[in-house]
Every structure is written in C-alpha cells, then in structure tokens.
C-alpha cells in the first residue's frame, strides 16, 4: 500500500491504495463517492465514466495509482453552489433517464462531448456516446438532453 494524492471534485485528498486498485474502486470505497457506478467492469458499458484532467475515461480501466497528481471529477462534483450542472438539468427536463444506472457516466461523457465539440450535431452526439450503454431509454431522450444542453450553453454564451 502506498499513499496517493489527487484532487477529487476540487478537493485535495491523500488516500492509501494497493497498486492493483482501480480508480473506480478508490472513488467508491475509501472516498465513498458511490455515484460512479460499475456496470460491466470490462470497459464496455461506460457507467464508470469520470473526468480525469477534464477528459472522460472509464474508471474501471485505469489504475488508481495512475491518477496520482490528476484532477478527477465525478457526478458528485458537477453541481456548483447547490445548482445542478446544465447537463444534469437537461437530463432531468428531457427525461434522459429511466432506471438511472448509466446516468452518471452518460452525463460525464456528454460533458466531455460538448467540451470537445460545442457545436456537436445529433450524429456527433450519437457517435460520441458509443462508449456508454443504456438499457432503458433507447438513447432518444439522452441525445435530446445533450442537444438541449448544447443549445442552452450556446445561448448563455451569446447572452
């Protein structure tokens, strides 16, 4: 066991982890951030998606020791000052979820999508979300939510 120091949701933390600890295990167990889900544990489903230094990655396929010195954002870190992130609001208003299991990963992936491509169209969004599997919604309202968030963010920039 060795101590790892990293920033999680803006707060610096130092935590013990064995080399084989996955980032998702570090987040869920010692750090108790259970909003990051484990769906498949085989890098297929994207439920465990978090942002590392601003980019979406699958936390089941990254060692916790590799996250030393990075900034990690989980679903718990998106809302600011008691206000939901625009992407969270869009998922809520467009009913972009049913059971909610895939939702934290879906939202973080969508945040990275619009950060990389603020003018993403429906095809771009559908392609981007290839790494996130949802078994309930048929994706329709998820894509609608991302596009609605895109429009809202574009408006707030113009405003």
């Amino acid at each position: 066991m060795g101590a790892i120091t990293l920033k999680v949701n803006g707060k610096q933390v130092t935590v013990d982890a064995a080399p084989r600890t996955l980032l998702v295990e570090l987040l869920r167990e010692p750090l108790q951030l259970t909003g990051t889900h484990v769906g498949c544990d085989t890098s297929q489903c994207g439920s465990c998606t978090v942002l590392v230094d601003g980019r979406s990655i699958k936390a089941c396929t990254m060692l916790a020791v590799e996250a030393a010195g990075t900034e990690v954002t989980t679903i718990e870190g998106l809302a600011q000052g008691g206000r939901l992130h625009p992407m969270q609001e869009a998922f809520q208003s467009c009913h972009g979820l049913q059971c909610g299991f895939c939702t934290p990963g879906m939202i973080l992936s969508a945040v990275d999508c619009l950060k990389q491509n603020p003018t993403a169209d429906e095809r771009d969004v559908r392609e981007w979300l290839e790494g996130n599997i949802c078994r309930c919604t048929g994706y329709h309202n998820i894509v609608k939510a991302v596009l609605s968030c895109r429009d809202r963010m574009a408006q707030s920039k113009e405003g």
Partner: peptide, 9 residues
C-alpha cells in the same frame, strides 16, 4: 478507435 473514453487513454 474504440470509443471516446478509450481514445482518451
């Protein structure tokens, strides 16, 4: 290659 998350790692 793969998907967005894989391409980021």
């Amino acid at each position: 290659i793969g998907d967005a998350q894989v391409r980021n790692r």
